[in-house]
C-alpha cells in the first residue's frame, strides 16, 4: 500500500472524464429524455382531446340523424297530403271539363238541328207548292198563298 504519482494521474483522468461527461454526455441524454417525456405527455393529451372530440362528433351525428329523420317524415307527410290534393283537383278538373264538353256538344247539336230546321223551312214552301200543284193538276201561285206557306213552315 504505497502511494505514488498514480494518485495524481488518476485524479487528472477523473477530472477530465467527469468534465467530458458533464459537457458532452449528460446534457444530450437528458435533453432526449425530457423531449420524449414531453412528447408522450403531448401524445396523451392529444389522445384525450381526440376522444372528447369523437364523443362530441358522435353526439352531433346522432342529433343530425334524428333531425333528418324528422325532416324526412315531415316531407313524406307533406307529399302525401299534396298528392291527395292533386288527385282531388285533377278529378274536379276532369269532371268540369267533361261537363263543359257535354254542354258544348249539346249546343252544337242544337245549332245543327236549328240549321237543318232553317234549311228545311226554306224548302218546305217549294215542296208544298209542288205537292199541291200535282194534287190539283194546275199551276198554283206561290205568292198568292204565301201566308199559308209561311204558317206551314213555322209549324216545322
Amino acid at each position: 500500500m504505497d502511494f505514488n504519482l498514480t494518485l495524481i494521474g488518476q485524479s487528472i483522468a477523473m477530472l477530465v472524464f467527469v468534465w467530458f461527461c458533464m459537457k458532452y454526455v449528460w446534457p444530450p441524454m437528458m435533453q432526449a429524455l425530457d423531449d420524449r417525456q414531453k412528447k408522450i405527455a403531448d401524445g396523451l393529451a392529444a389522445a384525450e382531446e381526440g376522444q372528447q372530440e369523437l364523443a362530441r362528433a358522435r353526439g352531433q351525428y346522432n342529433e343530425t340523424v334524428r333531425e333528418s329523420r324528422e325532416e324526412a317524415a315531415e316531407i313524406i307527410k307533406h307529399a302525401e297530403r299534396r298528392s291527395k290534393e292533386m288527385i282531388a283537383e285533377a278529378q274536379q278538373a276532369a269532371v268540369a271539363e267533361g261537363e263543359r264538353l257535354i254542354a258544348q256538344a249539346r249546343a252544337e247539336i242544337e245549332q245543327e238541328a236549328n240549321r237543318a230546321r232553317e234549311a228545311l223551312r226554306g224548302q218546305v214552301a217549294a215542296i208544298a207548292v209542288q205537292g199541291a200543284r200535282q194534287l190539283l193538276g194546275r199551276e198554283v201561285d206561290a205568292a198568292a198563298h204565301q201566308d199559308i206557306l209561311n204558317k206551314l213552315a213555322a209549324e216545322l
Binding site: 477523473m14 461527461c21 454526455v25 444530450p28 441524454m29 435533453q31 432526449a32 423531449d35 420524449r36
Partner: peptide, 20 residues
C-alpha cells in the same frame, strides 16, 4: 474510461426523443 465515454458520447450524439 475512454471506452465508457466514447460509447456514451456516441449514443448521446445520436440520441433521439423518438423510439430508442
Amino acid at each position: 474510461g475512454v471506452a465508457f465515454l466514447a460509447l456514451f458520447r456516441k449514443v448521446a450524439k445520436r440520441a433521439t426523443s423518438g423510439v430508442p
